[in-house]
Nucleic acid binder design. Structure first.
Lengths: 166, 166
DNA sequence: AAAGATTGAGTATTCAATCTTC
DNA sequence: GAAGATTGAATACTCAATCTTT
């Protein structure tokens, strides 16, 4: 058997299947729990929270829409729609980038920051309950290594594919 | 400091934040990759694939809608809608449970099984690329332990809450 | 009356145009 | 004309009724 070849390319073995199902289940549960908590206590979706949180950490609390789309992991049209909603609530403002009018800068307003800070403790608490209270410190480190390794593999694969398809 | 108290209840420390962001990112990337692969090569969403896969493993390739909803981690209304779509394609059939007419039994048809089997290799391949080719065997085991531990904690919490609220 | 499932209205998301600025 | 963003139509999802069987 050549080194590095997958054991069976067409189906998962018992251990892989178990791992995958557990992962799927956990991802779904955590996502549902966070969405429910935010919706109930703050009237926000997890996606909206993520957008506002990304803005809050950026310099001037501002990001270009396309950068925000990457950081919040959503499509640009989706970002645009959600930004419209958040703008109506007064939590976000948009304006053309003075240095290049093709870009739109989205900024978190003072009211938006206040909203985010009010929502944060409940959100962090739920996240702790779901994830960090349960795991040992060692498991948290393992989880980080595992996820970062997958990230690295995928981003280098994407790099390769982009290059090959152009 | 009392034993077992969280270090800081209101915000994540640097290590937790890094772990959480990596997890979020990986969950989003894998979900996007699997959806894209299935959509492109088989015209199925990952959710539809999961439903059909759950049915394919059940005795008689049949499950009650409510059981299927749990296994596929979707709401009953969502299941109902998706089942309507899959039924139109001829991949699923529904009929009242003869033993108790309140239940609806959903079954995977022969055509549905054929569709699933045609889609499986591509799906498994993508899953391997995303997850299993990248991780060591030891990491796969760690991932399983981590996810199963979270599952157990959440299900016992749910049990407690149900009891207390009733 | 209660459990299971479906339906319908409202909302969110996606995908393909379209518009604007460079 | 190309990049960034927005809009509009089609699809999907959620949540609150509704319907059916027990």
């Amino acid at each position: 058997v050549p080194t590095g070849a997958p054991e069976s390319p067409h189906s998962l073995n018992a251990e892989e299947l178990r791992s995958w199902q557990a992962f799927l289940h956990v991802a779904a549960q955590i996502s549902a729990a966070l969405n429910a908590q935010l919706r109930r206590d703050a009237g926000l979706s997890h996606f909206e929270y993520g957008m506002m949180s990304a803005l809050s950490k950026a310099p001037e609390r501002s990001l270009r829409m396309s950068t925000l789309a990457e950081q919040a992991e959503g499509s640009l049209p989706r970002l645009s729609q959600v930004a419209t909603r958040l703008e109506r609530k007064g939590w976000v403002r948009r304006s053309p980038d003075p240095s290049d009018g093709r870009f739109t800068l989205a900024s978190l307003t003072d009211a938006g920051l206040a909203k985010l800070e009010a929502a944060a403790p409940g959100h962090v608490g739920e996240l702790r309950r779901q994830l960090f209270d349960t795991l040992t410190k060692s498991q948290v480190r393992q989880l980080t290594s595992i996820c970062e390794r997958i990230e690295r593999a995928n981003s280098s694969r994407r790099g390769r594919e982009d290059r090959d398809h152009r």
